[in-house]
Computed example of a mutant assay.
Amino acid sequence: MTEKQEKILNAALALFAEEGYRSTSTSKVAKRAEVSEGLIFRHFGNKEGLLQAIIQLGEEQASVLFADIITETDPREVIKKFIEMISKTSQDEESIVFWKLQFKIKWELEMYGEHKTEAVEQVLIKAFTELRYLQPEKEANLLLTLMDGLATRFILQKSFDLDGTIEFLKQKYKV
C-alpha cells in the first residue's frame, strides 16, 4: 500500500467514524487526506470500494490477533489467549482508535462479519471439547459474545474495569 493510499484510508476511517459512512463524501475524504478526489477513485473505485478496503484492513488485523490463538494446541492456553487478546489491543492508543472506528462502522451499516471469527470459533470449540465441557459450541459462542461485549464496554465506558473482568473470566474458565 502506498503512503497516499494509507492517508486516504486513515482519513476515510476517521470521517466515517466522526460523521458516519452515509454522511461522508469522497470529496471530504480527499480534503482530509490532502489528495485529489480522482486519486480516491483511481485506487478504490468509489466510496463503497473505500469502505471495503477499510473492512478488509479490519479483517487483516483480526487475523493477526487470532493467529497466536489458532496455532495454539493446549486447550487451556487457547482459552486464556483468547480472553487476554483484548488486553493486547487496549494497550496501544492507535489500536484502540482503529477498533473503535471499526465498531462504529459495523453498527452504522449493520454489518457484523461473523466470518472473521469462524477460525477462532472452531479452535475454541475444539478446546472446550478437549476440556470436556458439556456444550462446547455454546461455550465458544458465549465466550465470543462476551469478548465482543467487553470490547464494546471498553470502547464506550471510560470507567470500565477491563483488567478485573479479564481476570474474572480467566478464573471462571480456570486458565
Results as ranks from 00 to 15, higher is better:
I86F: 02
E37T: 12
E121V: 00
K4L: 14
A67R: 12
K88M: 05
I54E: 11
G49H: 04
W107S: 09
K47E: 05
L101H: 15
E19Y: 13
Q171S: 09
F44M: 09
A11W: 07
L144C: 04
L50H: 10
A62K: 05
L150T: 04
Q102L: 10
E34G: 13
K172H: 12
R22A: 07
I96A: 13
V175L: 03
L39V: 07
F154Q: 03
L144F: 00
K81W: 04
S95W: 10
S36R: 08
K4Y: 11
K28H: 06
K172L: 15
R22W: 05
T26S: 13
A62G: 01
D163N: 08
Q157S: 04
L134Q: 08
L162I: 02
M1E: 11
K28L: 11
K174V: 02
V35H: 06
Q135L: 05
T26I: 15
R76H: 12
Q5A: 15
G58H: 10
R76E: 10
K100T: 15
A67Y: 03
A30P: 08
S63K: 13
A62W: 05
D74Q: 12
S23H: 12
Q61I: 06
F66T: 02
K4N: 14
Y21A: 04
Q122D: 02
D163E: 13
M1V: 04
E77P: 01
N10D: 14
L143C: 01
L15F: 05
K81F: 05
E137V: 00
Y21D: 05
G45W: 03
E60L: 11
M147P: 05
E167P: 01
Q61C: 01
E130P: 00
M85I: 06
E139W: 00
E130Q: 05
L134G: 10
Y112N: 06
E19K: 15
R132K: 13
L156C: 06
T89R: 13
N46Q: 02
Q5H: 08
K47L: 04
K116F: 04
E18C: 06
E77R: 06
M147Y: 01
R32Q: 13
K174A: 09
K158M: 02
S27M: 12
G149T: 04
E19T: 09
S95L: 13
T129L: 00
K80H: 08
G38N: 06
S36N: 12
